[in-house]
Nucleic acid binder design. Structure first.
Lengths: 336, 336
DNA sequence: TTGTACGCGTTATCAT
DNA sequence: ATGATAACGCGTACAA
């Protein structure tokens, strides 16, 4: 592998001149430019980005930590982030933790070691130690979707309004005449889980409905969690007539159980879920869902990071994007 | 940001000793170890991975180029690759090209600049220039799912047998009595598209069925492509009675058109597609699909790369993984 | 066991 | 416009 000195030697110029030709900016005489380019061609030279990074103190990489890249919401966020990054000449280093705290810690550790210029965090657990190191190391950071429980609030957050979106969805169920509601919630440490549950409760309280404690089940993340949670609901002596699911993954697990037990949606059970999917319109029946602008969320997160990278301090205010409630056919009016 | 020299000074030792304490391997006296660790703690020191990479000549990063991370197949491949990478102490740098040749070229360029130690390629277009540079730069590389048209065959490929899987699926349609078949194919430059089309034709030829030229439509990638392709099929004077789709994304587009036009599956039209999805079992009707072991494919790709990185040369033989044909309810026997 | 000093490949500064 | 050279921060021979 040829390096810049080999090129300089072959072209009979200094390394500085080679760099100038390659990186533009400062002018170089046509003759030398010519010779340098020829040497580059002959030696098949490409500059070493690691060396450049060390020299410049930046890697032109954005770090994105996610818990599960296979989640459609996450994937869209990643795309939004990446598209925005590209515009700024950056690439995205995606790492998924698979909900494993150890893995998360390791990733954050590596991020803190200057392997990326800025970081977007879309992950589940505590993170506190790793995040505070990012802060101490002055690495611009942004939370996506949710702020981990104990995390510094000096870090901005790009999200939707989980609470009111949940409330709206549950209100819809109430308007349909449902009085006995259930929820498949997420881990209580997850802020979005807490918020969606709060929205659920608020709507019920507003309608003076009592939520039976046994009707709120916490599912582990992953389709398995949804499966199990709804099974518990279906096993109740008195089943709720409508269920609100924390997210699309849990909803998919719920669908599996519902299918297995021949429960008919929406006749026997109404279902609403957070997070829409390409295929929800085609499910039997089409699933009513709260859609988040995932791509936009990712793009906004990137925008925030680049503002920080470009020195514009700006108040680290949270960005809240609107959700869209997509009514389809998974909910029935009571009595129908 | 403290560096190794600051730590050395604070601990009253040499930088070499600090490195030895931190990286293990060579023994250091207990007393000095103690002092170093204390200094690290106090200064909040973390080593700079960029500098380490430059010094060691490796980044501990695996590069993965994909055309669309939001494709479920792709996401699973990424997970398999990443899980395997983690085991070897590596992280994965995922870049998506969004089917844009320019973006692909740029990513490969950056990979060739030693930003990663090895590369897995799961992307669409030519790639030829960028790939040959990887080869010239001796960066271990592996193709996933498909080998680009003009690419060097010294690079191993991890894939499934598209041709026979397609043949099997189409044979299933034929066994159901269908004699007029259509296909929503992918871009002809895509090897997998060519292979799946070939499998389609082989099965038809074997049953002495003629495939009407107008029954093979090439869809642009993305749901839009599937939508348009099937519309063309549905607009035919004589519609085929069964359709084979190149992949799940195109199939989703097809579902949209089918729904809009009130075409009933499987009564009016039978549908089979390559690539399964979490939700296909719950679609109305459940979609019959060819499942690829995406996670395994990713893991195998990583394994191949690590073998190369660890010097084991090994014949660069292709790895072919088995598919699974999942029969559900989107295909009807002719006459039913 | 420990320290010194050099190399990694680039960029940037400072003369010229 | 051009060249010499000092960083950048770490790992690691080599010497002690």
């Amino acid at each position: 592998m040829a390096n810049i000195r080999d090129v300089a030697k072959a072209a009979g110029v200094s390394t500085a001149t080679v760099a100038r030709v390659l990186n533009g900016g400062t002018p170089v005489s046509a003759a030398r430019t010519e010779r340098v380019l020829r040497a580059v061609e002959e030696l098949d030279y490409v500059s070493n980005r690691i060396a450049a990074s060390l020299s410049q103190g930046r890697t032109k990489l954005l770090g994105l930590l996610v818990s599960d890249i296979a989640n459609p919401f996450t994937a869209q966020v990643a795309r939004g982030l990446e598209d925005e990054a590209i515009k700024h000449g950056y690439q995205v280093l995606i790492a998924s933790s698979d909900f494993d705290a150890d893995r998360e810690a390791k990733v954050l550790d590596s991020f803190a070691r200057r392997t990326v210029d800025a970081v977007a965090l879309l992950s589940s657990s505590g993170l506190s130690e790793g995040v505070s190191r990012l802060v101490r190391n002055q690495i611009p950071t942004v939370f996506v979707d949710r702020r981990p429980p104990v995390a510094a609030s000096t870090i901005p957050l790009v999200r939707t309004d989980s609470l009111s979106a949940a409330r709206e969805a549950v209100q819809y169920l109430i308007d349909l005449g449902h009085t006995d509601l259930g929820m498949i919630s997420g881990p209580s440490e997850m802020p979005t889980a807490a918020q969606r549950l709060a929205g659920f409760r608020e709507a019920c309280r507003g309608a003076e409905l009592v939520v039976r404690p046994e009707c709120v089940r916490t599912g582990f993340l992953g389709t398995e969690g949804g499966y199990q949670a709804i099974c518990e609901l279906l096993d109740l002596e008195v089943r709720p007539t409508a269920v609100f699911s924390f997210n699309n993954v849990l909803a998919i697990g719920a669908l599996r159980a519902v299918r297995e037990r021949n429960v008919r949606i929406p006749h026997d059970l109404s279902l609403v879920t957070f997070d829409d999917t390409d295929l929800f319109p085609f499910v039997d029946p089409p699933i009513t869902a709260i859609a988040q602008p995932a791509y936009e969320i990712g793009a906004q997160a990137a925008t925030l990071l680049f503002e920080r990278l470009n020195g514009r301090q700006g108040a680290p205010a949270d960005v809240v994007l609107p959700t869209e409630f997509r009514i389809r056919e998974s909910c029935a009016r009571v009595g129908d």
